[in-house]
Each structure stands twice: as structure tokens, then as C-alpha cells.
Design a protein around this nucleic acid. Structure first.
Lengths: 201, 201
DNA sequence: GGTGGCCGATGACAGTTGTCATCGGCCACT
DNA sequence: AGTGGCCGATGACAACTGTCATCGGCCACC
């Protein structure tokens, strides 16, 4: 019997995923969570074989939690669930010792199948996503450029971004200018959109 | 036995929702769809009692489909499913003769319960969402202002928005300026974000 | 028939944003 | 010791953005 932990913030979706997994004879859900920062403490107590983790969780994002989980409970394999297919996230996921990466519009059977294969030690990654990740490549942005883009995404003007990051306004504009040209955008918000879609933020 | 139609674009989530509904003794899923424009044709053939429809579907958005469904198969009641709770969408949903409105982070039992109540002729709407909708009120934006904001959201510069909407660049700036002051934003992207969150786009 | 709202446009102006050249400090690598 | 990259900063300049006043046409409402 494969013991599964499920972490997904939207209650209804989580319940539905649990229902889906519960249909399988060879697995049982031993924990249900809605926050990333509860994954490790819960896993230590419940000792799941596989953790099914949404990438976008409150408290602590799914990838950070996956890395921490690998450290705290190494025998527990992580299967990441993501809504949007952002290639850059795949790279970060692999660095976080994630063993499987399933997109939410994969066929329903893919989940249980993925859990089984990850439990068996295989890696489970959508081939299309691998191709996209290789194509997109690694982020061209420096950490600071990414920081600035993240703030710009919310519509903050230059000087407020500068204040929040303790930078000079002119420096912020330089970073934005660099980021804009690196990703091939026309302005800051375009750049933020491109970087976000690529999974670089 | 309540016959249910499920329309949700993410395959895995759809399968999970179907699994969840299939656990109920008094209902059966008679149709599964991933596109909005197939809802009406399918409903005409399968005659579901309740349609569970995601708001964000390819082909035709869930609300438009719900309105069409009400016209084509009036005895079928619609229950809308939405990820983000955007108050403005609730108003549009009610105009589309939607009978229920469930947020994806509602408890898992809420779905089957909602299906039952909608089938019984009740309206099912989260009280918090009603309050938020009343608070947010109806959109202050004129149709054209909303058009311009939608384009601005993607990072297009003024002149490209003008081209796409067949307007003068100066007019676009005026509309944006109006929209920005109406929603109390500091710039176009801030305005787009606010309007999007309110469900006005 | 007047009033008011939305549409579309123009011109002027200030403020913000994007680009470029250039600087110094720091750190890693050869 | 030199090279190159990232960080943070400045100044100047052009381009874009946001605001305001103002116009005419159209349509709905009283």
C-alpha cells in the first residue's frame, strides 16, 4: 500500500484529488494539507511514501517545501502538480529533488500512474514539458533583475520598487532596462509577463 | 438520480471532480467536457439536470455558455465553479441565469451539496462572495475603457493598443487615464490588476 | 428640445520610463 | 594579477505615459 500525502490549497480541488487517489486499490491518502509550511512537520509524523504537492501554496511554495522535505524525510518521493506549464519551474523542481512533474491538464489516470512510478523510483516528467524546458533554457536574469521584475509586475512605479528593495530609482530603471532587453520585451510589464510564463520569477 | 454535466478544461482536475461526484449515490456524471462551446450541443443530447461549469474555459467562457444553455435547455440548472473569487463575475453570472456559484477553495462536500440544492431549485452562493460583490459594486468602466485595459494588461504600448482597437493613440491614453482614476490606480497596469481582481474585465 | 453620457479626437504639459555611457566595489575564476 | 560578471550608483537624453481642457457627433432620456 502506497501512503500518499496531498498538499493543494484549493479545498475543493484537494478533496477531488483525494477522491481520485482513493479509487486506487494500492494507495491510501495519509495526509491532506493546504499550506506548504506544514508539509515537512506532517511528513515527519505520517511518513508518506509519496508527496503530491501543488507548486503554488500559501505559507511556503511547493518547490521550497519539496527541497526541505527531501532533507527531512529522504525516503519520501515528491510529485509536483502544476496548473500552468512554466518550463523554468521544471528546472527549479529538479534542483529541489522532485521526482515527478505533472501538469493539471494531463489525463486523470496520469496522477495515480505518476504516484506509482515515482514510488517505484522512476522519474515522471511530461516529454513535452522537457522539450519546452530545454527550448526555454535557463533564466537569463540575474537575481536582482528578477527581484525588480517581480515588483514591477504588480504595477508599482519605479520609485516605490526602489524603496521596497532599498535601491536607487535609477538603479531600478537600469535593472528593468536590462531585463527588458534580455527577454526581448518592449516594456517592464511585457518583460514581467514573459519571465513569468517562462517560470523565471 | 441527478444527471450531471461537468465542464472543466484541466483534464486532471475534471477527472478528480468526476471522481468526487461519483462517490455520491444520488448523482451520476452523464457528460465530461473541456470546452465551453461544446456545452450546449452536449446538453441537448444528454439532457443533464445540473451543469457544473468552470468559468474559465477555452472556446467559449463559462458564463456565456451558461446563458446559451439556459436558452437551449431551460430545465438544466447551472452551477459555476471558479478559482479566484472575483466579485464582478458573480453579477455577470446571475445575469447569465446561473443558479449556483462555488469557489474552488470551498470544502469538498460543498460541490455535491451545491449540485443537490441547485437541482432542488435553490440558489447556492457563498455569503462572503455576495458581500464582496455588493461591496465591489458594478463596474465603473465604460465598455471601451474595459477594452483598452484588457489590451494594456498584456504590456502592449499605447500605439499598439490604438492599432488593435482602431483608435487614435491619444484617445487610448485618455481612456486609460479615465480608467486609472476611476479604479483609483496609479498607472495602467495597476488599474488592469484592480479591474481584473474585481471581475470587471 | 435640452441634458447628459459615451465615443473619438486634438494639443499642450509634466512626469515617468527606457536607453546609454560610465563609474567603483566586490567576488570568482585563470 | 588580470578578466569578467554582478551589484549599485549617477547623469543625460529621448520616448512614452498620465493629466487636463476642449471639441464634435451620436444616442437615450425627460
Amino acid at each position: 500500500m502506497i501512503k500518499v500525502l496531498v498538499a493543494e490549497d484549493m479545498h475543493l480541488i484537494r478533496g477531488a484529488l483525494v477522491a481520485l487517489l482513493s479509487l486506487e486499490q494500492d494507495m491510501s491518502v495519509v495526509a491532506e494539507l493546504d499550506r506548504g509550511d506544514e508539509i515537512v512537520p506532517t511528513a515527519i509524523v505520517r511518513r508518506p511514501d509519496v508527496a503530491v504537492v501543488d507548486i503554488d501554496l500559501p505559507g511556503m511554495d511547493g518547490l521550497t517545501a519539496a527541497a526541505a522535505l527531501h532533507g527531512a524525510v529522504p525516503e519520501c518521493r515528491t510529485l509536483v502538480l502544476t496548473g500552468l506549464s512554466q518550463p523554468g519551474l521544471l528546472l527549479r523542481a529538479l534542483q529541489a529533488h522532485v521526482r515527478g512533474f505533472i501538469v493539471k491538464d494531463a489525463p486523470a489516470e496520469a496522477l495515480a500512474e505518476g504516484v506509482r512510478r515515482v514510488h517505484a523510483g522512476e522519474r515522471v516528467i511530461d516529454p513535452d514539458l522537457i522539450a519546452a524546458a530545454l527550448e526555454t533554457g535557463t533564466s537569463p536574469l540575474t537575481p536582482r533583475e528578477a527581484d525588480v521584475l517581480r515588483e514591477a509586475e504588480n504595477g508599482l512605479p519605479t520609485d516605490q520598487i526602489a524603496t521596497r528593495l532599498s535601491l536607487s530609482g535609477a538603479t531600478v530603471r537600469n535593472y528593468l532596462s536590462n531585463a527588458i532587453s534580455k527577454v526581448g520585451a518592449h516594456n517592464r510589464i511585457d518583460a514581467a509577463r514573459i519571465a513569468r510564463n517562462a517560470g523565471w520569477l
